[in-house]
Design a binder for these strands. Structure first.
Lengths: 136, 136
DNA sequence: ATAACTGTAATTATTTTTGTTACAGTACAA
DNA sequence: TTGTACTGTAACAAAAATAATTACAGTTAT
């Protein structure tokens, strides 16, 4: 998975949690994260698709959480951000003439699925609100 | 973590399991995985440091498992291969003037540690031998 | 109308990952 | 003792993935 994006998304969501009810600009978010505002907007766009934030265009626009931080879980952020699979599902092109090469991707896939399930369970136990409480 | 390397390492170990007792050359391994032999040797070097394989130089040299496949676990492969942390521990340089930016890396770290612990538990339940039985 | 935003495409720069070449070192075997 | 078949690594090159930047059209409050 893309490690940096998870951190960015959590950072965004944390900032939004601390200013719930306000529309926060991507410029402001980018300032705290210390990355480019366009990257933030891309990440917001992704989080929006997943129903985690909502945004308002135009003057005094910005973004905020789409629902209460108690009801947003780290597993959702993980899933929002992931594109590739955890450990690199089927990325190689092993030699099909080799009995191992021919079947290894399938077997790796099931291993990954199992591992990822466990990871999601673990991340699913942590809400955004809980995460944010650590900052107090 | 580096996804491709996990697959490569598991592939190597699987091939070595199927030819236990023989010294298998990096050339042969590279052929099944369909990657460059030097990459295989680099991966072998890493697995060797971790005590998972041993190698023999010189003519008719090669590599083999350092211990029985029943006693090698996927969690070990994961740990052998990982350098960066699972979800990108502290890769950003958030703004230290922001109360969230100042502390978020620490909090992300503990989140990651917890998640990774779970992942390792899951991978620790699968031995190399068990994985290889799927090929029969 | 203007100012302060978002949304997104297109481009470039940077970093990471992967592959390649090259060659020294080791061990077996004739 | 010399050739052959390997490993081990360094150094470099190529390719792919990430991140940053520029640019600009669209939206909304005032």
């Amino acid at each position: 998975m893309n490690s940096g994006r998870f951190a960015i998304s959590v950072h965004i969501l944390t900032l939004l949690t601390f200013s719930e009810e306000e529309w926060t600009s991507s410029e402001y978010l980018a300032g705290s994260i210390n990355i480019n505002p366009v990257l933030v907007r891309k990440e917001l766009s992704n989080l929006r698709e997943r129903g985690l934030v909502s945004s308002k265009e135009g003057k005094s626009g910005g973004s905020k959480l789409a629902r209460n931080a108690e009801k947003i879980f780290m597993s959702e952020v993980y899933e929002a951000v992931k594109q590739k699979d955890l450990l690199g599902k089927g990325i190689n092109s092993p030699n099909p003439d080799c009995p191992v090469g021919r079947k290894i991707n399938d077997h790796l896939d099931s291993l990954y699925d199992e591992a990822e399930k466990t990871l999601l369970t673990s991340l699913g136990k942590v809400s955004l609100a809980e995460f944010c409480r650590k900052f107090d």
